[in-house]
Design a protein around this nucleic acid. Sequence first.
DNA 1: CTGCGTCGCAGATACGTTTCTCCATGACTG
DNA 2: CAGTCATGGAGAAACGTATCTGCGACGCAG
Lengths: 385, 385
Amino acid sequence: MTAAANQNGRRATASRRLERAGIRDVAAAAGVSITTVSDALNGKGRLPDETRSRVREVAERLGYRPSAAARTLRTGRSGLIGLTVTTYGEEPFTFTEFAYFAEMARAATSAALGRGYALVVLPASSRHDVWGNIALDGTVVIDPPDQDPLVTELYRSGVPVVSDGKPGNCPVTAWVDNDHEAAVLGILEHLSEAGARRIGLLTGTSTDTYTRLSTEAYLAWCDRVGQEPVYEAYPAHDPAAGAVAADRLLARPDRPDAVYGLFDPNGTDLLAAARRYGLRVPEDLLLVCCSESDVYANTEPPITTLSLKPRRIGTTVVNLLIDAIEGVDAGSGSVPGRLFPPRYRTAGTGPPPGTLMPTELIVRASSQRRSPRTTISPPRPPGEV
Amino acid sequence: MTAAANQNGRRATASRRLERAGIRDVAAAAGVSITTVSDALNGKGRLPDETRSRVREVAERLGYRPSAAARTLRTGRSGLIGLTVTTYGEEPFTFTEFAYFAEMARAATSAALGRGYALVVLPASSRHDVWGNIALDGTVVIDPPDQDPLVTELYRSGVPVVSDGKPGNCPVTAWVDNDHEAAVLGILEHLSEAGARRIGLLTGTSTDTYTRLSTEAYLAWCDRVGQEPVYEAYPAHDPAAGAVAADRLLARPDRPDAVYGLFDPNGTDLLAAARRYGLRVPEDLLLVCCSESDVYANTEPPITTLSLKPRRIGTTVVNLLIDAIEGVDAGSGSVPGRLFPPRYRTAGTGPPPGTLMPTELIVRASSQRRSPRTTISPPRPPGEV
DNA sequence: CTGCGTCGCAGATACGTTTCTCCATGACTG
DNA sequence: CAGTCATGGAGAAACGTATCTGCGACGCAG
């Protein structure tokens, strides 16, 4: 009795219900062994082209689709990458990072797909059973909080983790972040050159890297140039709180004559607040905010924005992760030219490799006094209308 | 020789490298069989609580995590749902649907997670090998084009498919869509009541359901009330083309005194175009556009928008899909009270079940000739789905 | 005619679960 | 005391693939 007949028999005996064709069925139909089918379809082994194409044809005819689960089990690779986003509240995405996140996720999806991987969106707050039930080859973590237990567990269980945002106190394989310090300093300098005398900051109360580094850079700058810090912090995940904070900032006795807002909605909120106080932008108030939205190109006046270039970040993060996945799995091997040799995973070699990416300041009318020429209008005392 | 020793021996013989603890290791450590471990951890079988908790404790101590791949292979369920978005160009998301898609995806992710599933983002244009490599329990398809081959193949291979957007000519398990006809008629009526004499439309050139139904409803209305249609169509996926089309529309000799724009950026584009032509909004031109963005609450003037309520759609779509997945798999069974009995999957029983969901018109200053004081702009309830 | 290398493929095993089947053991009933 | 039943658990068969090992046949040199 041939093996094919045997296996086919077992199949038929077990159940004669509708079943998707398996590799065994293809083997039987083509009159070859399972090995041959596998080799033919995956381009491995030593087979004459004739056999290869015949097997392929039979597989096609039978509508054979290899079982992803079986392949994953066998190879240990699922082709799945987790995209973890830290959550505030029960919604999976942070509201304030929304445009940033959307763009970044889009780029990450593209990049992953281009290398044969797919992305699974997994809020960090997900039920643990969901996390455990998915075979992930690696994970991208967006802005992990300090001591993120999730990241720690993932890393310990051997899953490569690359974070968007310099990680606080958890081990990651690699990380990517903007140069927030340089970005903030650039903006402050830009505003100063435009004539700002007292620059205020609209910042957040949370402790993520972005908020922290940006605020620190602002405070350091204030200290250096001798300006008293003027800032308001609010819970960035609360969409209503931003408008209130913007209002508070402009209502202060030491009202700033220029403001940088760290979050996307700050631009419109500040603009609305300025209107309420009868402040003209940019004459009485210079405005910059961090945003990926191009609505700020069409506001009245258009608002200068800082772009974190999320597409670039998303692409980089995914590529680093996949490099790590494929590099690590080549494992203790001596594959030359690997971008990410295994040593990156070993502990004790110091901090994980990080990449700083530049930001881009898109200068519009809101941060330029007069016509965007070279002349700088004389500074104006705050409060004057 | 006991089974445990045997299996342990095999394990140790095979390789003594670092390996994640498997169910066998737990069984050996707890001094029970594999069956018992599986039953204890999954809450099945007949076991005294003492054994159960002991096994759980051992598993915890060993850091045991069941292999998702093995479980998927065995049970046939991966807990993964595909989220497919039709693409124009190479970017995975359609630009014009962006805010809609983002909100919808967010809600879908939440809903799926709440029921123990995770979402995989899969552009329809993905490399076929990526599609084939993922074990999906079902798929959500956003606005499938007519005769979508992908959907057809998925459906044929037995994967439940639920579409957002009434499907053209491809078989799906179920679908959800807005009542676009009612929405457009409502807007036209609203504009008429505000005093519009000639209502124009800014529409798209693509053939997706949304564009088609909306345009048809507009044309039908024109026919009924005896107005000559005044519209401009442009490729909605091209962000630059919208502004040009808006300009064209207002430059026509038969310039409309009210415009409805089908796509998100139309509001700002129309506003800018109106400014260029010296038209005041709403005095000379009434404006409504379809958008999920709340920037239109703060434009000058605020613009009336039609919300498609993407959160509600996303939630509904996912729930329908999971109902189908779990209902189908209970299979030929006689499980009572199933929301989606298997009969929905059988062919020949007519069109698949569809659900129409209402839209919401958020009336703002741009579509009201008189003082907008009397009407109350509905505040967004924070917990709204 | 023997030994050897290559070609083309078949067998068997392992991946790590879930689950069906079945066997002890004791308790209880008649 | 024999039969029945519930209890607690063990064994083994899948799930569908990839891959390691090995084997017959064939060509060719010695």
